Structure formats: C-alpha cells, structure tokens
Amino acid sequence: MQNNLTQLFSSKPKNLLNIFFTAGYPKLEDTTVILKALEEAKVDLVEIGIPFSDPLADGPTIQESSKIALENGMSIEKLFTQLESYREENPEADTPILLMGYLNPVMQFGLDKFCARCASVGVDGLIVPDLPMFIYEHEFKATFEKHNISNVFLVTPQTSEKRIREIDANSTGFIYAVSSASTTGSKADFSAAADYLGKLRDMDLKTPVLTGFNIKNNQNFKDACSFVDGAIIGSEFIRQIAETTDLKQTVASFVKEIKK
C-alpha cells in the first residue's frame, strides 16, 4: 500500500508531529484554513476529527469542539466537500491526512462509499477508536485496502503484549499509543507514561508508534519522541485556536513552539 502516510513512514523518521483538530471548529469553514496553515507550518501529519454527538474517547475540550462544530452545521458530507476544494486549491499539498471518527457515523454513511470519498479527496488513513479488530479483519480490511486507506489502531497501558503484536501485524499506518487509560486532554503529567512507552519501544515493533493524550508543549513532545516515533497534540491545539483572532498566525506559532 502506497499513500502519503506510508511514504512518510517508509524511512521510519523520528520526531513526527501530528496535530489533531475538529472539522468545522471554531467556525464551519475553518477546516481548510487550519489545514492550509498546518501544511505551511510543515507538520508531519494531520488528524481531522469528524464531530460526533457521543465521542467516548475524547475529553471535555474535544467534546466541546465537536458539539460546537455540529451546531455550526458540520457533517461528513460537508467535510468531504471542504477537503475536495482544499485539494483543488492546493494540488501540491502532500502532508498525510487522517480522519478520526466513530463507527456509527461511518456505517450510516456507508463503508465503501465513505472509503471511496476518502480516497477521492486525498485522505490517507482512518482512526476509528471503537472499531473492533475482529470486525476490521473480517468486514473492513478489504475495503480499506481497495481504496488505499491505512488503518490506525489504539493501544493503552492495559493492552496485552499479545494484542499489541496482533495490532502490529494488522497495521498499515502507525500505532496510536494512548498514554493513559483516561480520555484525551487529561491533566496527568506526561512522565507517568514513560514506563509504558519504554515497553513499546523495547518490543521492536515493525509499525511506527505515535503517542497522544497529554502532549501539550515542547518538553512533552521531546519526552514522547525519546521513546516513540512521534506525538499527537489535540486538546491543547484546540484550546489555542478556540479564542484566537488570527487563526493562521496562532497555528504557525503553536507548531513552531512545539518543534523548536
């Protein structure tokens, strides 16, 4: 499988920065503004959240952004339309894009139709936190592969080594290491994840590992990258863009500060 995501990981680079934001937040048409600003800031990959009314794995900051985005009128169809226009206006853009969403809306949209639209607008991978491995293997995998879409599974400190090995064998993008058993945006200190991330590093997995949930600043980013291949920042980024009057400048400054 070759897409922008697998090409990024082909050399297993280190210190990768993945920024998460919610589609349609703070305002409905901000999706492509933020995406363009992240591309220009040279983030390594971008994760766009599909707003959902019951986001079980998300903490209060992302839940609130999801609620506002839905109130703004965001939908899966609207997101695809936005991404389509983004690709038309930025044909040279090659930063890998992943969509993060829950199983129910994807199934309501139609799995094959959803994956086909992802492929047509340049989405490289999907993160579906509530997609069971068994269902993926037997019902989703062939469709993902048909449309050249990488799948990303989550692991937690409670995930067994056997399960992690199984996920490693079935991953075509990266493994998303949740640094705590809590929801995203937890206030727990990042250092609490050190033992866990060290164990993942020592397993010598074939699939790159990125960690999220608790990465808020440059020091957290450096700490994470000392164990795994990169870090994902969501809640802190959303807090930064929530009240800004200059979205592009805020995005650029945030990424520069993290990667300094």
Rank of each mutant, 00 (worst) to 15 (best):
N104W: 09
G110I: 05
G122C: 02
V106P: 00
L103D: 06
S120N: 15
G125T: 03
T143G: 10
L126T: 00
L131S: 11
D124Y: 00
S120L: 13
Q108H: 14
F109E: 08
F109S: 05
N104D: 08
K113Q: 15
I135H: 10
E145V: 14
R117I: 10
A116P: 06
L126R: 00
L103W: 09
V128K: 02
E145Q: 14
F144N: 04
I127G: 01
N148V: 08
E139P: 07
G110S: 05
I127Y: 02
D112S: 12
A119S: 15
E145T: 10
F140N: 00
E145H: 15
P129G: 09
D112P: 01
H147F: 05
K146Q: 10
P129M: 14
L131N: 07
M133R: 08
N104H: 10
F114G: 00
Q108V: 11
N104E: 07
H138D: 12
N148I: 08
I127T: 06
S120Q: 14
V123N: 03
D130G: 04
M133I: 14
V123S: 05
R117M: 15
T143Y: 07
P129A: 11
Y136C: 03
I127Q: 03
A119T: 10
V106A: 02
D124R: 02
E139L: 12
D124H: 00
M107C: 08
Q108D: 13
G101N: 13
V128Q: 01
M133E: 10
G122W: 02
Y102A: 06
K146D: 06
L103R: 09
D130T: 05
E145C: 08
F140V: 04
D130R: 05
T143W: 09
P129K: 12
L111K: 14
G122Q: 03
L131G: 12
H138I: 09
A116G: 09
V121K: 05
R117N: 15
F140C: 05
L103E: 09
L111E: 13
N148M: 07
V121W: 04
Y136E: 04
F134P: 06
I127V: 15
G110M: 04
C118K: 13
L103S: 09
G125R: 04
Y102K: 08
P105V: 02
F109C: 06
F109T: 08
G101A: 13
D112L: 02
N104A: 10
M133T: 12
Y102P: 10
E145M: 07
Y102G: 07
N148L: 11
I135Q: 13
G110K: 04
Y136Q: 03
L131C: 11
V128S: 00
G110W: 03
F140K: 03
L126P: 04
G101S: 12
Y102R: 06
M107N: 09
L103T: 11
A142T: 12
F114Y: 01
C118W: 07
K141Q: 07
M107L: 15
N104R: 07
